[in-house]
Amino acid sequence: MAGRPLAPRIGRAVLLAFFSALFVLYVAGPVAWLVSSSLQTEAQITAIPPNWLPPEVNFGNFDAILNAAERQVTYETRRQGDPATGGFLPSGAANLIPSLWNSLTVGLWVAALNLLLSVTAAYAIAVIDFRGRRATLYTVLATRVVPDIALIVPLFLVIRNLGLINTLGALVVTYLAITVPFTIFILISYFEGIPRDLYRAARIDGCGHWGALRHVYLPLSLPALVASLTFAFLTSWNEFVFALVLTQNVAAQTLPIVISGFVMDFTTSFSFVNAAGVIAIIPPVLMAVLFQRYIVSGLTAGAVKG
C-alpha cells in the first residue's frame, strides 16, 4: 500500500466524501428537518426565515400529543390557546394515542399471523413435491401481482356486507392479503437455499414434514424469519389506503389515518403535525435500522425471485 501514489487515493477519498455528503443531505435531510420542526414551538417554526435548528429543544408538542386525551377540545379552549402548539390543537388530537395502539395491535397481529401462514405454505411449496404445487404457487403469484387499487372497492363492499367495517380484525385480514404473498416468496427462496440433503437426512432420521420444518428449516432461516416479521409489521404500520376506506373512527383508525386528518385540517398547528409525524416514523425506522442486514437480504431475495 505504501508504494501506491498518494494523489489518486486522495482524489477517491474526496469524491467519496462529496457524494456521501450529497447522499446524506438528500436522504436524511428531509427527516432531519421534520424532527427539527417537531422540537420547535409554533412561533419558532413560523418564523421567516425558518430556524434550521431548534433555538432550544422543546418537547411541548410531544407533551401535547401525550396529554391530548385529557384535554377537552372545544371552540373555547382552542381560542384560549395552547402555549406549546400556538393554540391550534386539532380536534382529532385525542385520537392520536388510541390510533397508535391500534397501529401497534394490528401490526403485531399481522406480523405474527403472516409468519405463521407464510412459513407453512412456503415450506410446502419449496420442499414438498405434491400435486397442486404449481397451482398453489400460481395462486400466490397472481394475488401478488394484482394491484391493491383493484382490491379496494370490492374489499370495502365485502367487509361492509360482513359488518366488519371499522374493526381491527378487518384491517388484519386485509394486510395479510397484502403481505403474505410477498413473505411466501422471501421464504421460498430462502428455503430453497437450504441443502436438500439436510431435508433428506431429517426425513430419514424420523421427521415428518412438521418435524423437518421445526428441526431443520426454522432454525436455519432465522434471517428470513426476522425479515418477514419486520416487513409485515412495517407494511401494516405504514399502510394508508385500505385503512382510510375500512375504518371510520377511533375504534379502528390507525396512525396514518389520524395524521392525514391533521394534515388536511387547515387550522392545525404545524409543529403538532410534525411531532405526530415523528412519532409515526420512530418505530419503523428503528426496526429497519436494527434489522438492517436481515431486511436487505430478505427483501432483495424475495424481489429477485418473484
Binding site: 441443502p195 437426512a201 431429517a202 430419514i204 432420521d205 421427521c207
Partner: peptide, 17 residues
C-alpha cells in the same frame, strides 16, 4: 413415508445439521 421406514442413510454432502 421415509420416517416410517426404519432405514438409515449417509449422504455425499454429510448432511449434518
Amino acid at each position: 413415508p421415509p420416517h416410517k421406514r426404519e432405514v438409515a442413510m449417509v449422504f455425499q454432502s454429510y448432511a449434518l445439521y
